[in-house]
Computed example of a mutant assay.
Amino acid sequence: MELDSKIYIAGHRGLVGSAIKRKLEEKGYWNLVYRTSQELDLTRREEVDEFFQKEKPDYVFLAAARVGGIIANNEFPADFIRDNLMIQTNVIDASHQFGVKKLLFLGSTCVYPKYAPQPMREESLLTGLLEPTNEPYAIAKIAGIKMCEAYNKQYGTDFISVMPTNLYGPYDNYDLHSSHVLPALIRKFHEAKVKGDEAVVVWGTGEPRREFLYSEDLADALLFLMNNYKSSELINIGTGKDMPISMLAEKVKETVGYNGKIVFDTKKPDGTPRKLVDVSRLRSMGWKAPTSLSEGLALAYNWFLENEADATLMANKRRGI
Rank of each mutant, 00 (worst) to 15 (best):
E46G: 06
A94L: 09
K101A: 02
K146H: 14
L42V: 08
T165V: 15
P113Y: 08
V100R: 04
F159R: 14
V67Y: 13
Y59W: 05
V67W: 13
E122K: 05
D175R: 08
V67K: 10
L167A: 03
G128C: 06
P57R: 04
A140Q: 08
A63G: 02
P119W: 04
V111F: 11
G128F: 07
Y168K: 11
L103F: 04
D79G: 14
L85G: 14
L182S: 14
I139C: 00
L42Y: 09
P119S: 04
K54N: 10
M147T: 09
A72L: 07
E75C: 09
F51Q: 08
E46T: 09
L62W: 03
K56A: 03
L176A: 08
N173W: 02
P136F: 02
A150R: 10
S179N: 11
D79Q: 15
D175K: 09
D49A: 00
S124Y: 15
I142S: 04
A150I: 01
P164K: 00
Y137P: 06
K141D: 07
I87A: 05
Y174Q: 02
A140W: 02
S124I: 11
Q118L: 14
R45S: 07
T133N: 14
L104T: 02
R121H: 15
R44F: 15
Q88I: 14
D79N: 10
S179H: 09
G156V: 06
L130Q: 00
K153R: 09
F76S: 04
L167W: 01
F159D: 13
G69T: 04
E46C: 03
C110F: 06
P136A: 02
F159M: 15
Q88F: 15
T165M: 11
S179W: 00
H180I: 13
E122V: 00
I81M: 07
I71N: 09
D58T: 09
N173C: 08
P117Y: 01
I70E: 01
P113A: 06
A78S: 13
G144R: 11
E131N: 03
Q88W: 13
L125A: 06
S108Q: 02
L40N: 01
C110I: 14
F51D: 10
N84I: 04
A140V: 00
A63M: 07
E46Y: 02
P77L: 15
K153L: 10
E135C: 00
D93A: 12
A143R: 03
L182A: 10
L40I: 01
L182F: 14
N73S: 08
R45I: 05
G68E: 02
G69L: 08
A143N: 12
K153M: 07
M147E: 13
I71G: 03
G69S: 10
T133C: 09
Y155I: 14
I81K: 11
N84G: 07
K54R: 13
T127I: 13
G68C: 05
Y59N: 10
P119G: 01
K146Q: 14
L40Q: 10
T127N: 15
A143D: 01
G144K: 07
I160S: 05
Q154H: 12
G69D: 01
M120W: 05
E75P: 09
F61K: 08
Q88Y: 14
F159W: 12
G99S: 11
C110S: 15
E55I: 06
V181F: 08
N74L: 07
Q88M: 13
Y174G: 08
F52A: 04
E123S: 15
I145F: 13
T127Q: 13
A150H: 11
G156S: 11
Y59S: 10
V91I: 03
V181P: 01
